[in-house]
Amino acid sequence: MRILLRFLNGAILLYLAAPILVVVATAFGSSAYPIFPPQNFTLQWFHQFWGNPELRDALRISALLSSVSTILATSIGTLSALALVRYRLPGKTAISALLLSPILFPAIVLALALLVAFQRVGLTQTFTGLVAAHTLLITPFVIRLVMASLAEFDPSLEEAAQNLGATWSRTFFRITLPLALPGILAGAVFAFIMSFDELVVTLLLAGPELQTLPIRIFNYVQYSSDPSISAISTCLIVVWLAIGIPVYTRFLSVKHL
């Protein structure tokens, strides 16, 4: 019974990992379209991706969009988390549910809502519009992670500082901010990943001039097969795992999920 369960779980884990393993493997295969298992090891697809101006441009747009959105979301989200954790507020549960709600909505619904609204004010197909949409979508992740880290440390440290005569702003910058910093950084990292991978909302708002990397990948795999897509995907997988796993295990442990 126990051995059977172990075998079953091995198979389930393989199912879970299969597409990722396949994408990584095909990035190193020499045939002109991605097949698994790959034949002959090569690194040419990584060169090919880097030499492709469309993909490189997309990478640049994605990096810029995600950086700006992350900075905005981290500032906005940190302030909200502070308000929720450190103050008595009437209707706190409702407010925090409201602030976290953007993750609950289906992306395609938000995408259409933002499209019809942005159309009225001329924000579709603009960088500003994309930043606004991304900030909306990723701020909840910052709030959740910063709240988790603020709830961990002892408020009496702040009280002590105030009792010793520190002003509110001094307490904030010398005590609260340094102690919350790991949570804020974790929130920023997570928000950045979420923004960088966002596809649906961006797809409806972006227009031809602002094709992000996920949009390019989406279009490529729909109409052609090219192992350089495996190559760029492999880079993303490796980077996200390297920066994402520590954040996840430290702050989004299952109880916060």
Partner: peptide, 18 residues
Amino acid sequence: LMPLLTSTVVRTFGWMIL
């Protein structure tokens, strides 16, 4: 967690190959 941190587009691309 590994699949959760990999974008859906990439994972679906893997399934297309399979």
